[in-house]
Amino acid sequence: MSKTIKNLKQFSTANERFEGAHLLCPGCAHSMIVRELMNCTEDNLVLSTNTGCLEVSTAVYPYTSWDSSWIHIGFENAATAVAGAEAMYNAKKRKGTLPNPDAPVKFVAFGGDGSTYDIGFQWLSGAVERGHDFTYICLDNEVYANTGGQRSSSTPIGASTTTSPAGRVSYGEKKMKKDIVGIMGAHGAPYVAQVAPNKWKDMVKKLQKSLETEGPCFINAMSACTTEWKFDPKDTISVSDVAVDSLVFPLYEIIDGKELNITYRPKNILPVRDYLGIQGRFKHLFKPENQHVIEQWQKDVDARWEYLQRREEARV
C-alpha cells in the first residue's frame, strides 16, 4: 500500500533509498525521478535498469547507489528481468517457500529512451503483453546521452545530435518523435501516463497509481538533459516548466487503453519558440532559412493537443 502524500513537508519525511555520490551529471533529472519513485512508497522494491546513463552512473564498481534490490543485465531487457523476478516471486509464493510472504513487494523497471523506444522495445512489448505485474518507467531525455549524444527515435525534429548534426545543408534530426505513450496505450495496458519532474505532485500521484495498479503499467517521464539539450545545470526545473507549459510534453494518463485524462492544463500556454530558444540543441533553428521547422513544430504541438482533448472527450 502506498502512503498518502498531501504536501511537500509530509513527503520530505521519507527515508531516502537512492543514495548520493552516484555519477550522474550535476542537475540531471534522472535522479529526481528515481528519488520520487523510491520515496513515494514504503513497500519493498525490486528494481532493474536497462543500460544507459542511470545504470552506468549508479553502479560504478565498487559502489552501488541503490538501497533496494537492483539488477542490471543487458541494454534491452530491464522489462524482461523484472518480469522474470515477478514470475519467480509468484511461483515461490504459490509453493509457500517465500521467507516473508506478507511483505508487499513492487516490481519496477527503468529504461532510458534509447533502450525503451528502440533497443528494448520488443522486450517491453512482450512483457506488457504477457501481463506481468510491474511498472516500467522510461526516462525520456530524447537522445543516447550515455554514449555521447546519438539520435534515438525519441529525438524530436530539428534537434542537433552527433549523428544528426545541424550545418549548412541539414537542420538536424529530420524525423518526428515516436508516440510511445500512445503505443503502450494501444497494448491495452491498465495504466499508461506521461509525467515531468517539475510537477512533482502530479508525478507522485501517477507513480503511486502505477504501483498500486495490478498488471503492466508504463510511465514516460520527461528527463531534461543538461549535457545534450545544452542548457545550464541549474535550469533543469525551469526548462521542464517551459516544456510542460508549451505543451511539448503534455501531462496525461490513459487507463485500460481507453480513458484518456489530461491531468495538467497550463493557464498560459507558451509558444514552442520559447521552449526551443532555451536549449542549445535547437539554436540553429532560429536562422532565417530554418524558420519553417519552428512553424512545423508549433503546428504539430497544436495538432497533438487538439487530438488529446478530442480523445479525452470521446472516452474511447
Partner: peptide
C-alpha cells in the same frame, strides 16, 4: 538530484557537502 538536502521532521536542517555536486537547482 543528489540526495544532498537533509530534511528531518519536516524541517530543512542542512546540506550534505559530501554528495552535493553544486548544480544550483
Amino acid at each position: 538530484p543528489d540526495t544532498s538536502i537533509i530534511s528531518r521532521d519536516k524541517k530543512m536542517i542542512g546540506i550534505d557537502y559530501d554528495h552535493c555536486k553544486g548544480c544550483g537547482v
